[in-house]
């Protein structure tokens, strides 16, 4: 049985085709989320990668910020539930998931059977999200995916004291003007996100194992800083950004099995 999950985020669209709720047979990840053509293209790409057609799918589920505007799915599920399912599928021992997406951050707590038992979402604020990193990357003219390399070279990470993204932007410009090294500045930026999200996570009882999901999970600079902030190692999967879509495909599978 093939099931399909689509995660339409604020900045990216992700799709997963699963076979029998176990094996991932096709994936796609495109820049561009809600309101763009990316969801449509991501669907085609994932199906092509899996070598199946839409008609081969038994059930589909949509998640993410754009789930309610996507009309092709059989089910709509909140992204927190899907990230929980997807993370547990990848890491069966995981109990705490920290999801940093394009525009928000969430912490999900699972019980030993992988059932969600608590969650927290950040305030409507760009600080502590992928958007914060994007804004800083634009100022520094350094791609976000190179941040980790800079962090490794940092000796004396800069302090970014402003919580607000707008104020932090001014602060980073001031630090650039004062000659702070790029690697220290980038390490400080990653640390700023990590501390903010780490404090959100501390409001929930952090039970190991901990993993990250969402696009920012790819950023080792933030991941390592977050690990230091919460005092726990963080499990990482290259598929972390697909956890929502994996969870959606699993949800669709579970619904079919229950029928």
């Amino acid at each position: 049985m093939y099931t399909f999950g689509i995660d339409i985020g604020s900045t990216t669209s992700k799709c997963v085709v699963m076979e029998d709720g176990q094996n991932i047979v096709g994936t796609s990840l495109l820049v561009g989320g809600i309101g763009t053509r990316s969801p449509e293209l991501a669907v085609s790409q994932a199906l092509e990668n899996a070598g199946v057609t839409w008609d081969d799918l038994t059930a589909t589920a949509a998640t993410g910020y754009g789930r309610n505007r996507y009309e092709g799915a059989d089910y709509n599920v909140s992204e927190l539930s899907c990230h929980g399912l997807g993370a547990h599928h990848t890491f069966p021992t995981v109990r705490t998931i920290i999801d940093i997406g394009g525009q928000d951050a969430k912490v999900i707590s699972l019980d030993e059977k992988g059932r969600m038992n608590n969650f927290l979402m950040n305030d409507k604020c760009a600080a502590g999200t992928g958007r914060f990193l994007d804004v800083m990357a634009n100022i520094l003219v350094v791609p976000v995916d190179e941040f980790a390399q800079y962090c490794e070279k940092s000796v004396n990470p800069a302090q970014i004291s402003s919580t607000c993204t707008v104020f932090a932007e001014s602060e980073v410009i001031s630090q650039l003007a004062n000659g702070v090294e790029m690697e220290d500045l980038i390490a400080g930026i990653c640390s700023s996100v990590a501390v903010r999200v780490g404090n959100l996570a501390k409001r929930i009882n952090i039970v190991p194992d901990v993993c990250m999901s969402g696009g920012v999970a790819q950023n080792a600079g933030v991941r390592n800083a977050l690990s230091r902030s919460i005092g726990q190692p963080i499990l990482f999967s290259p598929q972390a950004q697909l956890f929502g879509a994996i969870g959606a495909a699993l949800y669709a599978y579970q619904k079919q099995v229950k029928k």
């Binding site: 910020y65 309610n68 709509n76 599920v77 909140s78 992204e79 927190l80 539930s81 928000d104 969600m116 038992n117 608590n118 969650f119 979402m121 305030d123 409507k124």
Partner: peptide, 26 residues
Amino acid sequence: CVLIEVDRQMVNYEQARTAIETFKDL
């Protein structure tokens, strides 16, 4: 127990929707 923040100028309730849908799942 779940918290959602509201104010008198809210136009977009999507974050609240996500929280409430997740609360329902919970």
